[in-house]
Design a protein around this nucleic acid. Structure first.
Lengths: 205, 205
DNA sequence: TTGATTTGGAAACGATCATTTCCTAAAAGA
DNA sequence: TCTTTTAGGAAATGATCGTTTCCAAATCAA
């Protein structure tokens, strides 16, 4: 994956970093997604990232630092992917269909089994790690806000009825999308999940 | 919690077990729910269960054995709680409202933060532990089947329109309920989650 | 060049993990 | 009563964990 995070080299002193940060984080977030936080050992992470433990600790401080960086990278990449999916749709209603289809498309087969890093860390870490909890909270609030804005957009462009309660429906759709990522862990079929997301469009009637 | 699992004492030889199995498992499933599988250490489990490591290994074989027993216990208890919630409702539609309200009621405040053991183990263990994956699959299939049956019941008793596609709607509601448990990890309010579950009732229109 | 600074990387560190061992206690079968 | 069987429990075990240390390599400032 070659999505840019921050590519401006600020002319730092000392020996320059040899590895590609985004590529390393892409491998790290894959390991964290598959294994979860605790089951992902430093050995497995360093091997996947193509680095030694020393380099990892120099760059990220500790294991938690690797996770937080990988989490931010994950959010960044997924948001851009979702943005691209939504952009083409002509109105609020169709943008929300694209959004739900996007999540349905990530909730079947091998990609579905790999799971969502945000959902995984929410269940595994949110209760005892306040920093992670805050990040999850921000991420979910952002997702919910985007859904809310799309509902209101649809109500303005006439594709969604005015009587739809935007706030509660946004929370329902947020829950539905995160839930698909959970159900997708059990290996559903593409048809199964797409049909579910199509059924969920009724929330906007 | 004093829900019976199997209370028939089959007159076993040897020294009889001194601890209460269901009470011990209730503590174990609480620890697993809060911490997750890997972060829950044997020390923390034994302390919560009021046992020594020796007794635990005698009774369950290994840590995974404790988890599987706790998981089955969790499913057993939760299913009975849900059954009670649904029983009073007069028709399919209202039973499904009771079902969604039940999950909404488990998705806010401290109980919401504690999370769902099935959702947690699905995200943490399903990919690499085939036994757990099978258990999650069976559990989710059971949940989905129950929702499906309630939709069909509603269509027979006239409380749900015939044009509702039962299969895809069942998967959508399943995803929605599991998703509420994920969103509930971030500490939502009671009103927030109840409003979302009420909005989700539109899936049955 | 020289010194300061940062990275790369192998090896070693203490801590904690799940698990086993070994012994005693308590019950049933003979 | 005596053997067998199972549970309770403290202590020890080996493995693995995250992390640190130490040194060579590479860059910039002077």
């Amino acid at each position: 994956m070659t999505t840019d995070t921050i590519d401006i080299a600020p002319k730092l002193r000392g020996r320059p970093r040899e590895f590609d940060m985004d590529a390393a984080l892409d491998e790290a977030l894959r390991v964290f997604s598959e294994r979860g936080y605790y089951a992902a050992s430093i050995s497995e992470l360093t091997e996947a990232m193509g680095l030694t433990a020393g380099s990892v600790y120099k760059a990220f401080g500790d294991k938690r630092g690797v996770f937080l960086a990988a989490f931010d990278r994950y959010r960044h990449v997924r948001q851009h992917m979702l943005d691209d999916c939504i952009a083409a749709a002509p109105n609020g209603y169709e943008k929300l269909r694209a959004l739900m289809t996007f999540f349905a498309g990530s909730s079947w087969g091998d990609i579905g089994r790999r799971g969502c890093l945000a959902v995984g860390s929410a269940t595994e870490l949110a209760l005892f790690d306040d920093d992670v909890a805050k990040r999850i909270g921000v991420a979910f609030d952002f997702d919910e806000r985007r859904i809310l804005d799309l509902i209101r957009l649809g109500q303005e462009d006439g594709s969604i009825p005015k009587h739809v309660d935007a706030e509660s429906t946004a929370c329902a759709i947020l829950s539905f999308t995160k839930g698909m990522r959970v159900v997708g862990k059990t290996g559903r079929t593409q048809e199964h999940m797409f049909a579910a997301s199509e059924a969920a469009m009724k929330l906007l009637n």
